[in-house]
Amino acid sequence: MRRGEISLAGLLALFSIYLMWKATELPIGYIRGQGPGGGFWPFWLSAVMLLSCIAIAINWWRGTSPASQSDEPLMDDFGWRTIFLVGGGVVAFVALISVVSMYGAIALFLLYYLRFLGRHSWWLTLLIAIGLPIVLFFFFEGAMMISMPQGMPFTQPFFDVMYDILY
């Protein structure tokens, strides 16, 4: 935890410096007749972010925050594995949207999660993994008139059939 806290503070300090630099693309001072420039507000806020990171680092050095006093690991093996499998699954889900469409990605994500992480029966897995995308299709495309990403061209026949049912 101790090493993690200072690493995160360092990373956030670097990001704050980047934001300060980026904010200077617009004037950060007072412009006569126009008021503060467009970069004024984000620049000084980023500067406060940087100062906060420095204060966090000082607290870490003095050992006043709980994380800075802890020698325990951030997460045990089970925690890391769970976060990797679940977080990785969500990342893969979003990456698949532009390939197999929103609904296809939902079906594959549910299949992965319910069957391989949740160890549910095939019957329940397929019921939810196929049923939910269909319900969501009618809700978003039909009721809310919002078109979700349709992925690569090979998904088109599926959408043709679904739109035929819808309209």
């Binding site: 679940v86 969500v90 889900f93 994500f109 549910l110 999660y113 319910l114 992480l117 949740g118 160890r119 549910h120 939810i128 939910l132």
Partner: peptide, 8 residues
């Protein structure tokens, strides 16, 4: 393990 994927 059913609720979590639905929320995601």
């Amino acid at each position: 393990t059913i609720l979590a994927p639905l929320i995601f």
